[in-house]
Amino acid sequence: MRYAIYFTPPAGDPLTKVAANWLGRNVFSGHAVKPPAIRSFEAEEVARLTVEPRRYGFHATLKAPFRLDESLTERDLLSALMHFASSTGPVTIPKLQVAAIGHFFALVPEEPLPELDQLANDVVVALDRFRAPATDAEKARRRPDSLSISQLRNLEQWGYPYVFDDFRFHMTLTGRVEEKDRLRVAGMLDAFFEPVLSEPVEIANLALFVEAEPGAPFEVHSLHPLAQPALTGAGRKSA
């Protein structure tokens, strides 16, 4: 079994529902969702675009999937995650937008948010003791030949290349999109998600996801509410 600490909106959030419709799976129930009918896009093409993100479910990575250290238990992880969440304030993303990240598309904040980056940093550090060291095979799957020096260092120390200065908050919508198709896919995604991108997104919980066995779809195990601002003291406003 592997665990991951992600952000995902609550089950009833309009963004969650639209994303489940796009990806073809509800990450809370695990149930398949009827694929959307999109003009000029066949259902099979949408299914191909969403194969990889469908397995992981709609989320933003804060701590990438990891095996639990053998000296610790799921109960230990849950206790630490609840404690961390209860002492950490929420972060509001004023607006998300569709953007290309390399060869795939995702929802990303319209503007940089240092407090969001800090939240991700804190999650990585605070809960790293629960992560079993990455195996050589796990490291190889990150394609180390394609990584920068800092990403390689992150992979060795934290088990994941894209943390700290290499972190970028994103909620993945597609797998690899060929260059010739990117303008068409970008326009379609803009139109599909536009109705739910006008409102701010509050990161008010941390989600524990689980992968029951290798290759199985990730599902929400539990949501852990972040503290209300009044409970976080006089330090950072939210992080």
Rank of each mutant, 00 (worst) to 15 (best):
residue 2 R to W: 01
residue 3 Y to E: 01
residue 7 F to S: 02
residue 12 G to Y: 04
residue 13 D to L: 00
residue 15 L to M: 05
residue 21 N to K: 15
residue 24 G to D: 08
residue 28 F to A: 01
residue 28 F to S: 03
residue 29 S to H: 09
residue 32 A to I: 05
residue 32 A to G: 12
residue 33 V to K: 06
residue 34 K to G: 00
residue 34 K to M: 04
residue 37 A to L: 13
residue 37 A to N: 12
residue 39 R to A: 10
residue 41 F to T: 02
residue 43 A to W: 04
residue 43 A to P: 15
residue 44 E to S: 15
residue 46 V to A: 05
residue 48 R to E: 14
residue 48 R to S: 14
residue 49 L to D: 05
residue 53 P to E: 12
residue 53 P to N: 09
residue 54 R to M: 14
residue 55 R to M: 13
residue 55 R to E: 13
residue 56 Y to K: 10
residue 57 G to Q: 04
residue 63 K to E: 00
residue 64 A to P: 05
residue 67 R to F: 03
residue 71 S to K: 15
residue 72 L to F: 09
residue 73 T to D: 11
residue 75 R to Q: 14
residue 75 R to F: 12
residue 76 D to M: 10
residue 78 L to P: 00
residue 79 S to V: 00
residue 82 M to I: 00
residue 86 S to G: 13
residue 88 T to V: 05
residue 92 T to P: 04
residue 96 L to K: 05
residue 97 Q to E: 14
residue 98 V to K: 01
residue 98 V to F: 05
residue 100 A to C: 07
residue 101 I to R: 11
residue 105 F to S: 08
residue 110 E to H: 12
residue 110 E to Y: 06
residue 111 E to K: 10
residue 111 E to W: 02
residue 117 D to E: 14
residue 120 A to V: 06
residue 121 N to K: 11
residue 122 D to Q: 13
residue 122 D to V: 03
residue 123 V to E: 02
residue 124 V to E: 14
residue 129 R to A: 10
residue 130 F to S: 09
residue 137 A to Q: 14
residue 137 A to W: 04
residue 137 A to N: 05
residue 138 E to P: 08
residue 138 E to T: 08
residue 139 K to N: 09
residue 141 R to H: 11
residue 148 S to H: 11
residue 152 L to D: 02
residue 152 L to R: 15
residue 156 E to Q: 14
residue 158 W to V: 03
residue 160 Y to N: 06
residue 162 Y to E: 06
residue 162 Y to R: 12
residue 163 V to T: 14
residue 165 D to T: 15
residue 166 D to F: 02
residue 168 R to D: 03
residue 168 R to L: 13
residue 172 T to P: 08
residue 173 L to C: 12
residue 173 L to N: 09
residue 176 R to D: 12
residue 182 R to N: 03
residue 185 V to E: 13
residue 186 A to Y: 11
residue 188 M to V: 10
residue 191 A to R: 15
residue 192 F to N: 06
residue 196 V to F: 09
residue 197 L to T: 10
residue 198 S to Q: 14
residue 201 V to C: 13
residue 202 E to C: 05
residue 202 E to P: 01
residue 204 A to T: 12
residue 207 A to K: 06
residue 207 A to W: 04
residue 209 F to H: 11
residue 210 V to D: 04
residue 210 V to M: 07
residue 217 P to D: 00
residue 217 P to T: 07
residue 224 H to S: 04
residue 225 P to C: 01
residue 225 P to E: 01
residue 225 P to M: 01
residue 228 Q to M: 06
residue 228 Q to T: 10
residue 232 T to M: 12
residue 233 G to D: 11
residue 233 G to L: 13
residue 234 A to C: 07
residue 235 G to C: 01
residue 237 K to F: 03
residue 237 K to C: 02
residue 238 S to W: 08
